[in-house]
Simulated scan of single mutants.
Amino acid sequence: MRNLFILSMIALMLGSCVSQRKYDELLATNKSLESRVDRLEQVKQAYDKLVVDHEALQSERDRLVREKSELERRANNLRENLDKLNVEYESLLSQNEVLLASATEERQALVEELGRKENEIAQKERSLERLQRDLDEKEKDLNKLQASLEEREARINELNDQINAQRDILDNVMAGIEQALMGFSDADLTVTQKDGRVYISLSQQLLFEVGSDRIDAKGRDAINKLAEVLNVNPDIAITVEGHTDSDGSAERNWDLSVSRATSVVKILTRAGVDPIRITASGRALYDPVAPNDSPENKALNRRTEIILSPDLSKLFELVQRD
């Protein structure tokens, strides 16, 4: 869509059919829409990265837990061996007391055996101390990892809460719009939700006479009812896009699509919608919903779309937080 829009701009400049001011306005509008799409993509990428980091931290935590369990098992084995050696040592001491009067060779052998056992006990105690230090370090690493994991989980939960809140707002807005516009036929207007936005498509038949940018009474009624819903949802950004079929010159279609979008904006603002929330643009014949190969399809393409987008400022604050 972006490339098509740029090509259409170049074609208009080469044909010198549209004034520089209108071209600049359309270019600025296109950049604004691209910026919104880019910001939504940044939020999605940041969210996906947080989920991947969370899974990596969870895996690292599981590994440390397994290592901690293994160290604890080895430490317990060493303690058991140490207890056994202490029992044997005490037994040898008792035997030594009994055999103090025994032959010199037997007494010397017992003393040597006692020395060996003492050395073995000392080695086991040093090994146990090393294992205990390793266990303490693993415990510290595990605590740090757990804290980081909890922080990541909190940020992911907060992001999910914000995303769900924006989805609820759009669902409520869409329900309110459907209720407000219930008296209009599907041929006159449709309301759909796509890519986190609400799209309201108003047919030319509902709003304008052929080739005119003056909105008739039925169209003004529909826009005023829509404005009532928008006024109670002030955090929703509004984009109004005019579209035409392929009949007539490109220059005429550009002018007509822009002026029709502007006419809709004027009614919205007169109905109390804050102008700072609204962006108006014309897409001429360059964004059709059907091929311009039949009267029926051309009628589908002659439309005005009102696109409602949620406020993403809180999501960006969460993504950019250290």
Rank of each mutant, 00 (worst) to 15 (best):
T244W: 01
T304P: 03
V198S: 00
A75D: 02
T304H: 03
L26T: 09
S94P: 02
R116E: 11
L93I: 15
T190E: 06
D255K: 09
I121P: 04
N77H: 14
T262A: 10
G242T: 00
L149D: 00
A56R: 11
E55D: 09
D255C: 03
R39S: 09
K84F: 12
K22I: 06
K218D: 13
K84I: 13
R220G: 03
S19L: 02
Q123H: 11
K218T: 15
T190K: 08
D188K: 07
E209L: 12
L181P: 02
I307Y: 00
N96H: 15
A250F: 08
I276L: 14
S148N: 11
N96M: 15
G248Y: 02
S91G: 09
D274H: 04
R155K: 15
Q179W: 04
V37F: 06
A11Y: 05
D141T: 13
T192Y: 03
S201G: 00
Q146T: 15
G176R: 07
L300M: 09
S102C: 01
D168P: 03
Y47G: 10
L300Q: 08
N3H: 08
V87R: 13
L145H: 05
L85E: 10
A28Y: 04
T239M: 01
D213I: 02
L71W: 01
W254M: 07
S102F: 08
S91N: 12
A299K: 11
V273G: 00
E137P: 01
L181K: 01
I169Y: 05
T190Q: 09
S212Q: 11
S246Y: 01
H243Y: 10
D245N: 10
N119C: 12
P295E: 04
G196I: 04
A175C: 05
Q20R: 15
G183Y: 10
E120W: 00
M13N: 05
N253I: 07
E113H: 05
K194Y: 10
S294L: 00
S32L: 08
L128C: 06
S69I: 07
S19F: 00
N3M: 07
K225W: 03
S148Y: 04
A217L: 11
G15I: 06
K49S: 10
E60G: 05
L27A: 11
D161H: 13
K266Y: 00
R73N: 07
S8G: 08
D134K: 13
L99M: 08
T279V: 14
S185P: 02
E72D: 14
L170A: 02
P310L: 03
I276S: 15
D134C: 10
I307A: 01
M182I: 14
R63P: 00
T104H: 13
L100C: 03
A101H: 12
M9Q: 06
I163Y: 03
D134P: 04
P295N: 03
